[in-house]
Amino acid sequence: MRSGSDGGSRAPGRALVAYYMVDRARIGRYVPLARAARRVGATHLELGFPFSDPIADGPILQEAADRALRHGTHWADLLSAIRETRSILPTIVMSYANPLWTRGLERSLADLRDAGASGLIVPDLSLEEAGPWRLAADRARLDLVLLASPGSRLARIRALARASRGFLYLVSRYGTTGGGAISRPSDLAPLVRTAHAAAPGLPVYIGFGIRDRASAASALASGADGVIVASALEHALARAPSTATIARVLRPIASAVRAVGV
């Protein structure tokens, strides 16, 4: 899904990114999970590597990460999960900076690409620090997705959009992942418009707090090209880990995505 290369992310239609935490206890079950997501309309998977100190995450993803680490989840488990899902849906990895840095940036990114990941999201990587990461990602032929926030000034949105690859991840509001209302479409729309103008062809996906049809429709009303669903999915899966759960959570969101059309 490198922008300009295979262009998989902007067309046709809008994107729906489904997030799963990588957990050793789930290895071998990613194939049915990914198929279930694709069946109801997911266009990408995002696999989260658990980190001990996830400062951008709310309680649901914190607990999911704690659980995964208690289960003894390691880097190799992330790579096997990618290998399971890559042929079903384009797979993007989410990891905090330290696990990638500590292993050696070049080596981590090569590992991810070799396993079949198409992109990488690093929630604690600011534009100021992204320089060496962008170079390494380009060399590994991996899309480094940058995040923008409602607090970002328009000049900064332009810089972020130009530097981001694959898509621009627009955080829906002030806050961590999960719960809480997202910003109004009228507040998000100028940010989306600015990003589109600065980087034509680069889609903008909105995440944080997308949990049902209404929140997805509201996010898409800003002109965004897709939504990312994480906490809502993890929360439901933690209680009832089945493909039926995935369908139940994603179907209403997918219908909001389809309603917007191309």
Binding site: D124, S126, E129, S149
Partner: peptide
């Protein structure tokens, strides 16, 4: 050093 933070904190 540096500033490895979510974008939301950068303006502050």
């Amino acid at each position: 050093g540096g500033a490895f933070v979510p974008e939301t904190l950068v303006p502050a």
